[in-house]
Structures are given as structure tokens and as C-alpha cells.
Design a protein around this nucleic acid. Structure first.
Length: 821
RNA sequence: GCCCGGGUGAUGGAACCGGUAGACAUGACGGACUUAAAAUCCGUUGCCGAGAGGCGUGCGGGUUCGAUCCCCGCCCCGGGCACCA
């Protein structure tokens, strides 16, 4: 009996957690059947709580993952306590170059490696106590999943949104693969840091640029973290301006052929003294005069040999050559020289520019170097038509040296000049986006094969939907080589197949698709995860989607989130789903660092979660992570700090088990209501650190001087702690004699605002804005009374010093400020 | 260069809408309990000063009765974008 006493009274996290994890697994807390999902979806309280699914690395779950998931799990558990039916799934984003490279390095086949990693991740996730629905999980590498990824590709293909085109692509010579623009960081491969080269390859693209206007517009109403919206906005990169044609033939003045440009500054067209084409521009052939041909060719050669890194650096000196050709400035009628230079990029706008050296820094630098004319056409404040240009003037102003437009405000001139040129048939207003089409082809092994066939007779044909999935075969030699061709292209037995059109021989597409395609729709799959007949069950989807809250890292602010939005919009337009935005609310969490520095293997400061969970338990670890700092800003992990939350949970344990039945002390009652109020607001806003602080403060009041807690003081506290420390909360809830799980819906405590405040408040008395006294006064005291009480104070009198009080500032229940001066 | 964040005690971080700067926690110091340690509990802890008081939220100005908060001009740190015409 006595040894049982000690085991029941001391907080033993390992034991408690083991018990409740087993209990949850057995009772299926928050684990639904498909029928339940259907029913709950109809009942009006569904809450889809989504977090970004992890890539199951061989190293196991990272603290960063746990940090992200813990905040999201607290949010989900809180919603559940509020009475929602919460669907909280997790899955694995297991395709992609990351896994493949690791597999190559260690000599383990990805088909062997990934299941092992997933098993390890699952074990770790269960240890932390997340309330995932393990009945609805996804693994993107399972044919039952990627069958539908391929289906998705086919829907885009049929809608004309998946097209194959020859394009210069970013090529990583180390990974031997094409990279999306988004995967090029500072001109280097995102994964391995190798400088990226340029190659021309025939690739599958999704025409996301068609959706640029809507992707941008919807940002105005979706409830997302501002930083994330801003990142998307910048990425889409809308520019408004004009498309202008500069005719080549000076005699006919015919608008065709012409050098076509996009400009955001049509107001400066009178200052366009030359033009520049990208070296790859098709018109270079036409424009180059015989005497210039040699020089032009040499320059083009040099540029094509240059990698993208060097080409796109802004700090190198401008280079370029004159083609010998000329075009006509449609505004001035002047003939101006046409140059080529690598600072003009083929992939943006029309691949050609009108150069306005007076008002563009790049053009200015170029004109200076090559002695081209620089003309002022905008006069800023204090400037006029003859003010010399020491550097490009890019600010606002009025037009000068611009014939009939002189004196016009630049903004007005933009519209007027565009309209006038439009009337002449040489220009029209145009909006440009810097967003590029999404290249989804990967010349790699570890991805879903793109479901396309090539037949000599029938041409390019999609794999019929009833023949999906196109299964990725197990092959031993999956290592990419420098040929730029997919490893699958070495397997004739796989790629040679029957053409569904003519019955002849067809060849399969041997490229696989980008991992970002797998993750662009996984949230649609979760609730229908077991469905063999459909990618997503219409009824379940109607009940549960769009996602209520999506929580994830800002590193995916641009790519993943943009692609997911795009795919959802397409599915909406094709009639597959009723909503066009997948995530109603998105919140980015911060990054967790270690003692001021980013955690990394090379620094050797990676926190291994298991050690801390072993030592303190998952509940303490969860609470500590959330206590580190504001969830949306991240925090600094330091070993010493974990004892704070650990002590808190210990004190709570003791307080609950030693609590006695007796009426609440009035001070405790007031603090209780104030705490419920505060914690509710903070948890609602994902400010978990201050929520925890409020609970600690409350417990300090409840146990002030080591007094025993009232039973009624601890029950609500337990409910508030539950999302943070679920195992401990369940255990104590049970020990207190409550039946069932503490997470059974609808138990979040409520508060009475009237009882959350004390009868007396501490007033601050200021004289000339400086605090001179503090005094207790009854709540709701009026200005006159407060002022009288303040003036009665000796120290206040000393500072008033017989002077007349000229003005009194009164903030109810807070302060009185006597202005004497 | 542009766009976002951010800069507060020894440390992580609080502070509603312009109204007591430093909640909560760590660390440190002192005390109680203990043979001792751990745990627990109590107290102190921004700086200067015996005190009264003065000074304090990256720096310099401003607005205000009152500024961590708003405005102007800078510095520094983190992240994103970047010859995008």
C-alpha cells in the first residue's frame, strides 16, 4: 500500500505518457472512420486543422518539426475543447531529390529507406502526443496516393494547362537535374549549393502564369499571415505599364516588323535614346549588319557560355555590342541604335527594352560606358530641363524635353502617352508578372512518372485514367547521369508499352514530376485517404474543406502555398471542388534556434528531441517549446529553460492531487476568471508563451505561501493546460474522478468578465507626467474623487509645490496626471 | 538596392488602443526545512544613490500632460526578393 502511495503521488511523466498513448491508440481518440467523417461533416462543427506534412528524413523528427506540430496540435486540441469535431491528420512527403540523394549516398534503395523512415517518424510523433487521425494518413510515394497525383496531371493536361515546351532551364550539374526557378537560391542549387547552369530541354510546364491575376487578387481577402501574403505578392510580381512597338523600317513607318518592348515608364519614352535586346532574341539575326556580325556572334557565344549566376549578378560591369541595326522611337520619330546586352533577359517581358538612360540606373551605366546619349525627360523638385544628370533620376516629377507633354505630371503622362501611342496603333497598356510557368519535369527516379505516352502514329497521348497508376518500377540503377535524361529512360522493359490509341508501340514519358506537385493537393486527400475509386470523396470534401487553419513554416510561403492555391483554383474551375482557396486561415510559425544560432548539423548544435522527452516527458517538452517565445516568431532553445515548465507541471500535479473541497477564496476566484479570459484570448491568437505565463501566474496565486488549492480552482486550470500537456491533463482528470477523456468536446472553461476584476485598483498618480505616487482606490472612482485623493498625498503635494493644477488627465481605473507647469 | 520582421535587465522574453517598463521563467544571491543533497517554500535581483531622487526599451531629433508604442533621420541583426525593364 505504501509503495503504491508513492507511485501515485509523484509525477512520473514516462509512466503517465505511456499509459495515455496506449489508451488513445486503443480508444481511437480523434481517429475517425469514413462514415464518421461523413456524419460529422454534416453536423456543422467540423474543424480541419492542418499542418505541413514532413519529409521523413533518415535523421528522424527534428525539433523544428515538433515545434511546428506542437503549436498546431494545441490549436486543434483547443478547438476540440471548444466543442468542434477536429480532423487533424499527418502524412509524409516522401518523394523527391532529398530522399533520393540520401539513398544514393548511403546505398540504400529509396523503396527500402522510406518505409523505414516513415515507421521511425510515426513512432516519434506518437511519443509527443499529437492527436493525429492515424486512419487518414498519406504517403506520397504510395501508388494509392500518386495514382491521383497522376490523375491531377491529366486534368491539367486536358484543360490545356499542362504543356510541353522547349525552354532554357536551370540545370544542377551536381544533382544532374532540372531545378525550378524557385529551387535556385542565389544562382545556386537549393540542395547542394552548386552553381546552376543553363540548358535547353523539352519539359512539362503548368501554366500557372494564367492564374497570376487571381492568385494575386485573392490575397486581399484570405486570412493569412501578412508576411506570407507579402512574399506571395512579391513573387507574383505585378508590373503595370505598356507594350510598345519600335518599327524597324524608317521609311514605311510600318509597325511591323518591330522591336517590341514592355515598359513601366511610358512617360519617359522621349528619353529612349537606344534599345537593347537580349542576346538570345530572335530579331538579332534580322538586325545585325554584315560589318557587325562577327562581333555580335562572338558576344552571343560568350553569353551563352556564361552560367546564370554570373549573368544575373548586378554588380558586374555592363557589357554589350551594337548590332548595326536601328529602330524608330514611335514618340519622337527618331532612329535609335539597337544593341544587345546580357543585362536584358529573354525570360522577362519581351526580351527587349527601350533604354532610358536618364531615368534608369542600368541604362545610365550602360550609356555612360558606351557613350550613348543621355537625355533628361523628367524634372524632379528643383530641377528643370537643363539640370545635368550625374546619375539616373528615378524619382517623381514633371515631363521635360517631351514635346507636347512638357509640364505634365509623370503619372498623368504615363496614361496619356500610352493612350496616344495606342491611337497610333503602336502601343497598348499591359500588365506583366514576374511569375514563371511551373516546370514540373524532373529527370530523376524518385517521383511519380508523368502519365504521358508518345506514339509515332498518335503523337502525345495521356495515359487513360483507368490505367493509372503508372507505377514507378523498382530499379537498381536509379542514379542520374550527366546525359540529362531520366534514369527510367535506361529501362526499355518499362517505357516501351502499347499505345492505347492505335495499339501500336508507344514510349512512356520517362521524366517524373516535381515533389511540389505531390504536396500541392495532399490536404484534399487526407479525409478521403482510403478511397480507391476517387481522389477525394465529394461528400466528405464538402463537409470538411476548405481547411480551417493551416499552420506551417514561412520557408514555404512562396512555392508550396502558391502551388497548392493554383491547383485548387484549377480544380475549382474544372468543377471538382466548390472553393477556390484551399486554406481559409494560414499562420506561419517562427523558427527555433539554439543559443542565438541556427541549428545545423555542421554547427553540431542540433537538439535531439528524444533526449529531452526521456528526461522530462513530452508534456514538459511541448510546454517548454511553446514557452520559448511567440509562436509566430520562433524562439531560442536553451537547456536551462526547460526546468521552468517542468517545475510548473510538477507544481500543478501536486496542487491538483492535494486540492481540497472548500469555497473559492474571493481573490482566487477573481484571478481564475481573469486567467480564463487571458488564456482564451492568447490561445485563440496562437500566443502560447503568454498563455503559459498566465497559467503559471494563476498557479502561483492558488498556491501562494504553499496553501492547499481549492478543488474548484484546479479543475478549470487542468482544462486550460490540457492542450499543452495532454497526458498529464488526462491522468489528473481521471484521478479527480471525472469519467472519459478530458478532451471530450465542449469543456473549455468560461469566464465572467465582471468577476475577472478586483474591487480595488492601483492608481498611478503623475505630476507633469512623472509617477509620484501609487494608491489603491475603489474601481470605477470618478475623476473628481481620484483627483482629490491624489492631491491629498504628501509626496504629490511636494511636487505640485503650491502651483496651480492647470490640467488633469484622467484614465479610468488607471491614472491621474496633474499638469502643473 | 527593394520588401518584410526585429533591437527591452545577466538570459529567454512581457507590456491592451499612446497611460505603472521589465509580467512569466531561467540564472544569481540570501533565508527556512534537511546530517547532507535534491525537491519544496520565503525573500532580493535594471543602473546610479545611504535616502530623497535621478537615469533607463539601438542612436539623434520631433509630436504629446505622458512615447518601448506615433512621426522624421540614422545604425545594427535576421529573413525574403533582386540587372524584372
Amino acid at each position: 500500500m505504501s509503495d503504491q502511495d508513492s507511485s501515485t503521488n509523484a509525477y512520473a511523466p514516462a509512466e503517465v505518457e505511456r499509459k495515455w498513448q496506449a489508451r488513445w491508440a486503443e480508444r481511437g481518440t480523434n481517429t475517425y472512420s469514413d462514415d464518421e467523417l461523413r456524419r460529422l461533416g454534416r453536423e456543422g462543427r467540423p474543424f480541419y486543422n492542418l499542418m505541413m506534412f514532413p519529409y521523413p528524413s533518415a535523421e528522424g523528427l527534428h525539433v523544428g518539426n515538433i515545434y511546428a506540430f506542437t503549436g498546431a496540435d494545441i490549436h486543434g486540441r483547443y478547438r476540440r475543447l471548444r466543442g468542434h469535431d477536429v480532423f487533424e491528420p499527418i502524412g509524409f512527403d516522401a518523394f523527391g531529390i532529398h530522399s533520393e540523394n540520401f539513398a544514393l549516398k548511403t546505398g540504400t534503395h529509396p523503396m527500402e529507406l522510406i518505409p523505414r523512415n516513415i515507421a521511425n517518424f510515426t513512432r516519434q510523433l506518437k511519443r509527443v502526443g499529437f492527436m493525429y487521425d492515424w486512419n487518414h494518413t498519406v504517403d506520397t510515394t504510395s501508388p494509392t496516393y500518386y495514382r491521383w497525383t497522376q490523375w491531377l496531371f491529366l486534368q491539367l493536361y486536358k484543360a490545356g494547362l499542362a504543356v510541353k515546351k522547349e525552354a532554357p532551364v536551370n540545370w544542377c550539374p551536381s544533382c544532374n537535374t532540372v531545378l525550378a526557378n524557385e529551387q535556385v537560391v542565389g544562382g545556386e542549387c537549393e540542395r547542394c549549393g552548386t552553381p546552376v547552369e543553363l540548358r535547353n530541354l523539352s519539359q512539362w510546364f503548368f501554366r500557372i502564369t494564367e492564374y497570376a491575376p487571381r492568385l494575386l487578387e485573392n490575397l486581399s481577402w484570405i486570412d493569412w499571415s501578412e508576411t506570407t501574403k507579402k512574399a506571395q505578392e512579391n513573387w507574383i510580381g505585378k508590373s503595370e505599364g505598356a507594350h510598345v512597338r519600335f518599327p524597324l523600317d524608317p521609311d514605311s513607318r510600318s509597325p511591323d516588323p518591330a522591336v517590341e518592348v514592355f515598359t513601366t515608364r511610358p512617360d519617359t519614352i522621349y528619353g529612349a535614346t537606344y534599345m537593347v535586346l537580349a542576346p538570345e532574341h530572335p530579331l538579332v539575326e534580322v538586325l545585325t549588319t554584315p560589318d557587325r556580325r562577327e562581333e555580335v556572334e562572338a558576344y552571343r557565344q560568350r553569353v551563352s557560355a556564361t552560367d546564370l549566376v554570373t549573368r544575373k549578378t548586378t554588380d558586374k560591369e555592363k557589357t554589350g555590342v551594337f548590332t548595326g541595326g536601328r529602330a524608330v522611337n514611335p514618340a519622337t520619330g527618331e532612329e535609335i541604335p539597337v544593341w544587345i546586352a546580357d543585362y536584358v533577359l529573354m525570360e522577362y517581358g519581351t526580351g527587349a527594352i527601350m533604354a532610358v538612360p536618364g531615368h534608369d540606373e542600368r541604362d545610365f551605366e550602360f550609356a555612360r560606358k558606351f557613350g550613348l546619349p543621355i537625355r533628361r525627360v523628367i524634372a524632379g523638385p528643383g530641377q528643370d530641363a537643363s539640370t545635368p544628370l550625374e546619375e539616373a533620376y528615378v524619382g517623381p516629377g514633371v515631363l521635360v524635353n517631351s514635346a507636347g507633354y512638357d509640364g505634365l505630371d509623370w503619372q498623368v503622362a504615363k496614361k496619356r502617352i500610352t493612350a496616344d501611342l495606342q491611337a497610333k496603333g503602336v502601343a497598348e497598356p499591359q500588365v506583366n508578372y514576374r511569375l514563371h510557368d511551373w516546370c514540373i519535369s524532373r529527370q530523376r527516379y524518385w517521383g511519380p512518372p508523368i502519365p504521358i505516352l508518345y506514339c509515332d502514329t498518335c503523337g502525345t497521348i495521356p495515359v487513360p485514367e483507368d490505367q493509372l497508376p503508372v507505377v514507378l518500377p523498382f530499379v537498381e540503377d536509379y542514379k542520374p547521369d550527366e546525359s540529362g535524361i531520366s534514369p527510367l529512360a535506361r529501362h526499355e522493359e518499362w517505357y516501351v508499352t502499347e499505345c492505347p490509341g492505335c495499339g501500336g508501340t508507344a514510349r512512356r514519358e520517362t521524366d517524373v514530376s516535381d515533389t511540389f506537385l505531390d504536396s500541392a493537393w495532399y490536404f484534399l486527400r487526407y479525409p478521403s485517404a482510403g478511397n480507391q475509386a476517387l481522389p477525394f470523396d465529394p461528400e466528405i470534401t464538402r463537409g470538411w474543406l476548405p481547411v480551417d487553419t493551416y499552420i506551417g513554416g514561412n520557408e514555404h510561403a512562396v512555392l508550396h502555398l502558391l502551388y497548392a492555391r493554383f491547383v485548387t483554383m484549377v480544380l475549382h474551375d474544372l468543377g471538382h471542388v466548390s472553393f477556390e482557396e484551399p486554406f481559409e486561415r494560414f499562420r506561419a510559425h517562427g523558427l527555433i534556434i539554439k543559443e542565438g544560432a541556427k541549428m545545423s548539423k555542421s554547427r553540431g548544435n542540433v537538439v535531439v528531441p528524444d533526449e529531452y522527452i526521456d528526461q522530462y516527458g513530452a508534456d514538459t517538452f511541448r510546454t517548454y517549446l511553446m514557452f520559448l517565445g511567440p509562436y509566430q516568431e520562433g524562439g531560442d532553445f536553451r537547456e536551462a529553460g526547460i526546468t521552468g515548465p517542468f517545475n510548473f507541471l510538477n507544481r500543478l500535479w501536486d496542487a491538483v492531487l492535494s486540492a481540497e473541497e472548500r469555497p473559492l477564496d474571493p481573490a482566487v476566484e477573481q484571478k481564475l476568471h481573469a486567467t480564463i479570459w487571458k488564456v482564451t484570448e492568447e490561445v485563440e491568437a496562437l500566443r502560447f508563451n503568454t498563455a503559459i505565463a498566465a497559467m503559471m501566474e494563476y498557479l502561483n496565486v492558488v498556491r501562494a505561501g504553499g496553501r492547499r488549492a481549492e478543488r474548484a480552482a484546479v479543475d478549470p486550470l487542468l482544462l486550460m493546460v490540457a492542450p499543452f500537456a495532454p497526458h498529464l491533463a488526462e491522468e489528473l482528470w481521471e484521478r479527480l474522478g471525472h469519467g472519459g477523456s478530458i478532451f471530450d468536446a465542449g469543456r473549455w472553461p468560461s469566464y465572467d468578465p465582471a468577476r475577472a476584476v478586483a474591487d480595488e485598483v492601483e492608481f498611478v498618480v503623475q505630476v507633469n507626467g512623472k509617477v509620484r505616487a501609487r494608491m489603491r482606490m475603489p474601481r470605477g472612482i470618478d475623476e473628481a474623487a481620484a483627483r482629490e485623493a491624489a492631491l491629498a498625498d504628501a509626496n504629490v503635494q511636494r511636487f505640485v509645490d503650491g502651483g496651480a493644477v492647470r490640467k488633469t488627465i484622467f484614465v479610468p481605473d488607471r491614472l491621474v496626471n496633474l499638469v502643473v507647469r
